[in-house]
Amino acid sequence: MAVARNRGEGIYQLTLITSPPPHIHAAISVDRIVHLTGASLLPGVIWLIYLFGWQALRVMVLSIGGAVLTEMAVMKLRGKEVTVQDGTAVLTGLILAFTLAPTVPSWIVVLGAVIAITIGKQIFGGTGSNPFNPAVVGRVFLGVAFPDQLNNWIPPHSVGTVIQSPLELWAAGEALPGYRELLAGSTGSFMGDFAVVVLLLGGLILVLRGYVDWRVPLGVLGTAVLFMAAVGQDPAWHLLTGGVILGAFYLAGDPVTTPVTPWGRLVFGIGVGLCLGIIRYYGQNPDAIFFAVLFMNGLVPLLNRLLRIRRKGAVACGKR
């Protein structure tokens, strides 16, 4: 059923589909995935509030609130049962907040959440039907629309002195912060970058519980490491900043927007890692991870088609 939907013709035959995606996790309900993913982010939330105080809280509350209210409003308008209690909107809002700096103006945060839910999700049919990760859609929209407002990075416990992010320093060829600064979060970047360790642990838990297929983060991180090493960059440094960990587990790993087959997921992960390397290294773009995930999300239907499971002994119709 899942494969049929992705053969292209399915898009016009939505009424025929009985099980809504995510298809492969039939045994695990959406609720479980959302709850555990949310729980794995909680330590990060607390840590960020400790680092940035009400600024971080403001961004998270606005982002989650915007996402939830938009979801409710759009589902009402579409005449559907409002399923906001499944928590997917909360999660989208929270992850979007993790991709933003604590300095982002309130109205931009809310706009990003609205865009994420409408254009990123509901327009394609709501939970489970979105081809792109909603949080990434919102983040890329904001990044392209409001670069001046988005890229005001501040270090923790600061009173608003704007500094350059590690990747901006890197692109400008200036002295770089070391691993310790990156891990301890004394640089300036978007919020997810200050909680790299927590996100990595959370991500590993999700992988162990089988909610995120290990092939995706492995593909992303492995390819990114190989790419950066091949072009003579420090791979470890590049994994620690610019949202790579967040992207590998929480953005690329989102089961809704990854291919359905194991091979497809591995190729998908490798693709994200490769795009990340190319966009970051050659394009010198600090937001590379978001563009990489967005681009590879767009290729998921193609990967599903090319790398679908072929049953042994089955004969294709009309051939032989």
Partner: peptide
């Protein structure tokens, strides 16, 4: 007013077009 730069770039055209048709 803060300009939405994306609207002057190619993605803005696709977004606008899509939303109008929608």
């Amino acid at each position: 007013f803060v300009a939405w730069r994306i609207m002057q770039l190619p993605p803005g055209a696709f977004l606008t077009m899509g939303l109008i048709v929608f």
